[in-house]
């Protein structure tokens, strides 16, 4: 199915590679890189990705509490691991 896209200001109509044209694409792709667009999705292009950013997710109060809780959990548990290492080192001596 043909579609129309706007890649970095260039209007491009494109269609998926089919059995009838894929050999031509394979031969030409390195000489005519615009054919890249026939097999890659729009937001797979490196420069298209650099120009687009996903916006910030809205973090609800519940999500913030979860994020902080797990962060505190990690810090506490790392302290416990360090405690066990110290116990082991002291035990070895």
């Amino acid at each position: 199915m043909e579609s129309e896209d706007d890649i970095l200001g260039v209007k491009i109509r494109r269609a998926p590679v089919t059995a009838s044209n894929e050999e031509t694409v394979a031969i030409d792709i390195e000489h005519r890189p615009d054919l890249v667009l026939s097999v890659l999705e729009m937001d797979q292009l490196v420069n298209a990705k650099q120009h687009t950013k996903f916006g910030r997710m809205k973090l609800t109060r519940g999500i913030r509490i979860l994020l902080w809780s797990l962060r505190i959990y990690v810090i506490m548990m790392v302290l416990i691991v360090m405690l066990q290492i110290l116990q082991t080192v002291n035990g070895a001596h």
């Binding site: 200001g9 260039v10 491009i12 109509r13 494109r14 044209n21 031509t24 030409d28 667009l37 026939s38």
Partner: peptide, 14 residues
Amino acid sequence: DGLPEDIHIEDKPL
């Protein structure tokens, strides 16, 4: 020239 029949690029650069 050189493009498969069903791939077209419009010559409309910014």
